[in-house]
Simulated assay, not measured.
Amino acid sequence: MAINLVKGQKIDLTKGRSSLSSIMVGLGWDPVETKKSGGFLSGLLGGGGGGADIDCDASVIMLDENGKLKGKENLIYFGNKKSKDGSVVHSGDNLTGEGEGDDETINVDLKRISPSIHRLVFVVNIYNARQKKQDFGMIQNAFIRLVDNQSKEELVHYNLTENYAGKMSLIPGELYRQGNEWKFSAVGEGTMDADIGSIANKYA
């Protein structure tokens, strides 16, 4: 049974799970529905009837022991779907976020992650957010979950329940190495960064 986390909570994924080697990281979101031309939701969306597709992109920033991004090959996104060591594989781009379940998935083979990589930061940002005047106040039901690829058991589920209006990127969570164990932290942080490059530069 999955452990439901709250913001700031951390969990040891591999302790007591010696067989855990590969996980699926699922990220999901839905556009806020606009049922009326006026009222609360219209105000939330900044005026007129919304309903425009919001293209969110999931990415992974792979960091070394000093928290630094060493090379573009350690940035996994729709333009670079597989890490150099083959440990992180992106499922591809979902353009709308409509429908049930995961919108984008990333497979992580914990055993194949290069020893030089100590932290995996998961990011979701809105594509062309600034040009489209879109932000995460237009998104609801955002979550990140981790599933054991072998047993298909959902290990962790974290619903991002804060109001992220005005934010163009989210960092829902991160995997990090501590000794021989891998842990997960529910971060739930929103940023004003309009694209994944801006976020990646912070770790350069």
Rank of each mutant, 00 (worst) to 15 (best):
L20N: 00
S21Y: 11
S22E: 15
I23T: 07
M24F: 15
V25A: 08
G26I: 04
G26D: 05
D30K: 10
D30F: 05
D30P: 00
V32N: 01
V32K: 08
V32T: 10
E33F: 12
E33A: 13
E33Q: 09
T34A: 14
K35D: 14
K36E: 13
S37E: 14
S37H: 10
S37G: 15
S37A: 13
G38K: 14
G39Y: 06
S42F: 01
S42H: 09
G43M: 07
L44C: 10
L45Q: 14
L45D: 01
G46S: 05
G47Q: 12
G48F: 14
G48W: 07
G48M: 09
G49A: 14
G50H: 08
G50I: 09
G50C: 05
G51M: 07
D53L: 13
C56S: 06
C56W: 00
D57H: 01
A58F: 02
A58H: 02
S59N: 11
S59R: 00
I61M: 02
M62G: 00
M62E: 08
E65V: 06
G67A: 02
G67K: 02
L69G: 02
K70S: 06
K70R: 14
K70D: 08
K70N: 14
G71T: 03
G71I: 02
K72S: 13
E73F: 06
E73H: 11
N74I: 10
Y77I: 02
Y77T: 05
G79R: 06
N80A: 12
K82R: 06
K84D: 09
D85S: 03
G86T: 01
V88Y: 04
G92T: 00
D93I: 00
N94Y: 01
N94T: 01
L95V: 12
L95Q: 12
G97I: 04
G97F: 04
E98K: 15
G99S: 11
E100C: 10
E100D: 15
E100P: 11
D102R: 07
D102F: 15
D102A: 12
D103E: 11
T105P: 04
T105E: 10
I106P: 03
N107F: 13
V108T: 06
D109G: 05
K111E: 11
R112E: 11
S114A: 08
S116I: 13
H118T: 13
H118Y: 10
R119H: 12
V121F: 06
V123Q: 07
V123A: 09
V124S: 04
Y127V: 04
N128A: 13
N128I: 03
N128F: 12
A129W: 01
